[in-house]
C-alpha cells in the first residue's frame, strides 16, 4: 500500500491536508481557528479534485496557435472554480456570524460560550 501511495503522492498529500484541517476543527477552541480548519479541509478537497485532472506533461487547456496535446482536464478546474466561490461565500457568512457572536457575548471561545448558556 505504501508503494501505491507513493505513486499517488499528490492524492495522499491532500488526504494529509484534510486531516490537518479536521484536527483544527476538533481540537481548537477559538471559533475563527475552527473555521480556518474547515477552510483547510475545503482546500484539501479542491487540491484533490484539481490533481485528478492533471495529465503527465499536459499543457493548460487553452487552444492557441502554439498549443499542443496533451492538455490537462478542464472540467475539474472549472468545477473547483465554482467550488472556491462557494467557499468564499460560506467563509464570509461564517465570519459575520462570528463577529455577531463576539458582539453579543464578548468572546468567541467555544468553552466559554458553552458555559454562558
Amino acid at each position: 500500500m505504501i508503494a501505491l501511495l507513493w505513486i499517488n503522492l499528490d492524492y495522499a498529500a491532500s488526504v494529509v491536508l484534510f486531516c490537518i484541517g479536521l484536527y483544527c476543527v476538533v481540537t481548537k477552541n477559538n471559533l475563527i481557528k475552527k473555521f480556518i480548519g474547515l477552510n483547510i479541509m475545503e482546500t484539501a478537497v479542491f487540491a484533490f479534485i484539481v490533481a485528478l485532472g492533471v495529465v503527465e506533461g499536459g499543457d493548460a487547456p487553452i487552444m492557441g496557435a502554439d498549443a499542443n496535446a496533451p492538455f490537462t482536464n478542464p472540467i475539474p478546474q472549472a468545477l473547483i472554480l465554482t467550488g472556491i466561490v462557494v467557499a468564499v461565500s460560506t467563509t464570509a457568512l461564517a465570519l459575520s456570524l462570528i463577529i455577531r457572536i463576539y458582539q453579543h457575548c464578548g468572546t468567541i471561545e467555544a468553552d466559554e460560550l458553552r458555559e454562558m448558556e
Binding site: 500500500m1 499517488n8 488526504v15 494529509v16 479536521l22 476538533v26
Partner: peptide
C-alpha cells in the same frame, strides 16, 4: 483515534486510484 479512523480509509481509497497523471483516469 478520530484522525486515524478518517485517514486510513481515505488513504486506502486514494491508493486504489489510477496512477496520478495518467491520461487513462476516468475523469479524462
Amino acid at each position: 483515534a478520530l484522525l486515524v479512523v478518517v485517514a486510513i480509509p481515505l488513504l486506502y481509497a486514494v491508493a486504489q486510484l489510477p496512477q496520478h497523471g495518467s491520461p487513462m483516469t476516468p475523469p479524462y
